[in-house]
Design a binder for these strands. Structure first.
Lengths: 167, 167
DNA sequence: CTTTGTACCATCCGATTCGGAGCGTTGTCA
DNA sequence: TGACAACGCTCCGAATCGGATGGTACAAAG
């Protein structure tokens, strides 16, 4: 079975969490990795089972209460994740920005800019807030680096749209 | 029928080209809009027919040779495009960057950076080259603006990965 | 001790999207 | 005139998507 980015996200989240239910994966995904790789929640329920079939993840049921499924990495899973992290090459990024689409086809820059500015300012503020919370903690080097990337790009967006807004 | 981003891309490309075959749409898409909104080529064959059904586009067959289908905007199509360009609000961007995924989950920044640097430097050079070719021409304000956005972001990437590469 | 409300949690499925396999066509060069 | 490459298009199985749906635990209200 071929491993997709979704697979690695599940493996990666499990490596952080140790053990998690799909619901917890969903929570862990949104707000962190979710910013630069979205995964529909239904996948976060389906994917772990596929990984179990591939032997990369193991599952146990909670004894009591909801009897939820809790997943964790197997040795093979840890290894698959490590291998993936070690290959330097990655496919190019994908990027889909409706606002640029409008600009490209001739929309009035000023009016597109206004609504974009709001969005990007908000996102920038959110990222900077997350950053503060992350700073003290150990083991967050990866997330911190990606967050910095996000912050730098949001700054560029804010500058860009500010310019187009005529301010 | 609901219009998707793909629909507007076809409408927009047709508004630039006047009349085009799917193959020409494909060529017009890749290398321009393609940078920030990818569309599989099969869609560029299917979508125009959907738009014909919706009355936004008209089709005629070439008389000779390959008898290819050539599409162009109807008045309704032009109007639909104009309306879309006029609404200021747009859904948020989507962004999928495998390299950040690896970084997030703990890959060695230095080795990811090396291959990323190459990619982004290449893309930056390409964009700057396109920019030169675009500068003189009238009616390219939209494309030029989006190109500038692309260039600024590529610069940020080059800086970012340079830093992580340890240089 | 029942009812009600509300988070929490999970699954399913129809609809869309994807991208590559495959194939006819045109033109060109030997 | 045969072979080959580039052009141009279609089709279809597979993957993805996300919304609709429905069940469960728990607490507060009555």
């Amino acid at each position: 079975m071929a491993l997709t980015p979704t697979s690695y996200i599940v493996l990666g989240l499990l490596s952080f969490a140790g053990e998690a239910t799909p619901y917890e994966l969903k929570a862990g995904h949104s707000g962190s990795v979710g910013s630069f790789w979205s995964v529909p929640h239904s996948q976060l329920y389906a994917e772990p089972d596929r990984l179990v079939a591939a032997g990369l993840v193991s599952m146990r049921r909670e004894e009591d209460g909801r009897r939820r499924k809790r997943y964790s990495l197997t040795d093979a899973g840890r290894e698959a994740l490590r291998d993936w992290l070690a290959e330097p090459g990655t496919p190019p990024a994908e990027f889909r920005e409706p606002a640029l689409l409008k600009l490209f086809f001739g929309a009035d820059p000023g009016s597109v800019a206004a609504s974009q500015l709001e969005q990007h300012r908000g996102r920038l503020a959110r990222y900077e807030q997350i950053r503060v919370g992350l700073l003290g903690q150990p083991g967050t080097e990866g997330p911190l680096l990606t967050l910095d990337a996000g912050i730098e790009h949001e700054r560029v967006w804010v500058d860009y749209w500010t310019r187009l807004a005529g301010g």
